[in-house]
Simulated scan of single mutants.
Amino acid sequence: MKSQFLLNSEITYLNHGSFGACPKPIFENYQHWQLELEKEPVQFITKKSNDYLKQSKTALAKYIGCDAEDFFFTPNPTIAINTIMRSLHLQAGDEILSTNHEYGAMDKTWNFYCKKTGAKYIRQNISLPIVSKEQILKEFWSGYTSKTKVIFINQLSSCTALIFPVKEICDKAKELGLITIVDGAHVPGHIDLNIEELNPDFYTGTLHKWMLTPKGCSFLYVKKEFQNTIDPLVVSWGYESEIPNGNQFLEYHEYQGTRDISAFLTAPTAIQFLNDNNWKEKSAQCRKLILDNYESFCDLLNTKPICPVTEEFLGQMCSIPIQTESLVELKELLYNKYKIEIPVMKIEDKIFLRISINVYNSQEDLDKLRMAIIDIKATTDLLK
């Protein structure tokens, strides 16, 4: 499968989780749409784009388990969350219950909103190591108060690479009458997703990570009962349309004037690529590499796994605790000297080396990382 990707063959790429990697057939489809746009921009933007989007959304809706009219494409989940945030109308003192494992840009988004409104963003501590799903649920809900109005939680954490019990959280939130917002940036194409079964009020995910599309391809799902309450982040031609199509929700959010929607239109080709290449089996092989190697990397670095080493908590990523005071220098050394692309990430006082595995990776790649760590420990003081 490695020959199917455009990645630099001189680099050991263990960082699929950050921005994904696009296979050649999907990238060629992306260029097809860009060329069609440039050959006749007026016809593409004013006449054809709506039909093209419908075709792409119909394919994606089946893949992620929801209605095609209940979501729209966005460049990334940050834009999706900003769209929701600005329409919540929370009052001073209202609380958004979250965790201390969320993506940094999301924390910044909610902090911005809370400064403007007087609401409070509660980063409930989920302690490490994780012992069980029940531990996560108990610690999370201990942050609930009578002022809690919104639940915001990632389904798969970027920094700690942990899978969270989002279904159970959504179910209980419904019982409590809370709004549920799920950040599923790492989910589509990575672990099973059926949005209607999960039953959140809002869900955002990316296609450009584990679904392998070009960069800048994500979506925001909004449950029907909330669709008319969500204002467009950018007001454009779809607002109070002169030619309404009967779906104000999509008019407000999809008609954004001049923009390149080519990445959005690659969803059917991406799904076909996954199906043609038996992705469930290949994904299982990637998960096995994670499970087989996680504990030995922890042993090498004199640390312990942050969760039970099972598929309940881990997908195609794992975060290895490390002891270093020079995380930027360590990351740069791994890339510049050893030609390994891998993130070194910090959450509060904890630092992790996060491994992401996809089909272009092999045990040989992990062995290269292992030998690099052994050499770094022997020749530098970057790792304790």
Rank of each mutant, 00 (worst) to 15 (best):
residue 303 T to H: 06
residue 307 C to G: 13
residue 290 I to Q: 14
residue 249 F to A: 06
residue 253 H to A: 09
residue 272 Q to M: 00
residue 297 F to M: 07
residue 248 Q to D: 13
residue 246 G to M: 08
residue 253 H to M: 07
residue 287 R to K: 15
residue 300 L to Y: 07
residue 272 Q to D: 00
residue 310 T to G: 13
residue 294 Y to E: 09
residue 269 T to F: 01
residue 294 Y to A: 08
residue 255 Y to W: 13
residue 312 E to P: 04
residue 249 F to W: 09
residue 291 L to T: 03
residue 260 D to C: 04
residue 250 L to C: 04
residue 278 N to I: 05
residue 300 L to K: 05
residue 278 N to R: 02
residue 252 Y to K: 01
residue 282 K to M: 01
residue 290 I to W: 14
residue 245 N to G: 02
residue 298 C to D: 12
residue 261 I to C: 04
residue 274 L to H: 14
residue 245 N to M: 01
residue 253 H to I: 10
residue 307 C to W: 11
residue 271 I to T: 01
residue 255 Y to T: 14
residue 277 N to Q: 00
residue 266 T to M: 06
residue 246 G to E: 06
residue 290 I to P: 14
residue 271 I to V: 02
residue 290 I to L: 14
residue 286 C to G: 15
residue 243 I to R: 10
residue 256 Q to P: 07
residue 290 I to Y: 13
residue 252 Y to N: 01
residue 279 W to E: 11
residue 242 E to L: 08
residue 242 E to Q: 08
residue 281 E to Q: 10
residue 308 P to N: 12
residue 242 E to Y: 06
residue 288 K to D: 11
residue 260 D to N: 15
residue 263 A to W: 03
residue 302 N to P: 14
residue 264 F to I: 04
residue 285 Q to S: 10
residue 303 T to E: 03
residue 298 C to Y: 09
residue 271 I to F: 02
residue 288 K to N: 12
residue 298 C to M: 12
residue 316 Q to K: 14
residue 286 C to T: 14
residue 276 D to T: 00
residue 244 P to A: 10
residue 268 P to V: 02
residue 265 L to I: 06
residue 259 R to Q: 03
residue 272 Q to I: 00
residue 258 T to K: 10
residue 288 K to Q: 15
residue 257 G to Y: 00
residue 315 G to S: 15
residue 308 P to L: 12
residue 259 R to K: 06
residue 268 P to E: 02
residue 260 D to W: 03
residue 319 S to D: 09
residue 308 P to Q: 08
residue 305 P to C: 03
residue 262 S to E: 00
residue 299 D to M: 10
residue 264 F to P: 03
residue 275 N to E: 13
residue 293 N to F: 08
residue 282 K to H: 02
residue 281 E to R: 06
residue 309 V to P: 05
residue 256 Q to F: 05
residue 243 I to D: 05
residue 287 R to V: 13
residue 248 Q to P: 05
residue 242 E to D: 15
residue 274 L to Y: 07
residue 253 H to V: 06
residue 253 H to W: 05
residue 318 C to T: 11
residue 279 W to V: 12
residue 261 I to P: 03
residue 286 C to Y: 10
residue 255 Y to R: 15
residue 317 M to F: 15
residue 257 G to S: 05
residue 298 C to H: 11
residue 247 N to S: 01
residue 282 K to S: 02
residue 311 E to K: 15
residue 300 L to Q: 08
residue 250 L to M: 07
residue 278 N to Q: 06
residue 274 L to S: 11
residue 292 D to L: 03
residue 308 P to K: 11
residue 262 S to F: 01
residue 273 F to Y: 00
residue 281 E to G: 04
residue 250 L to R: 07
residue 248 Q to M: 09
residue 246 G to R: 12
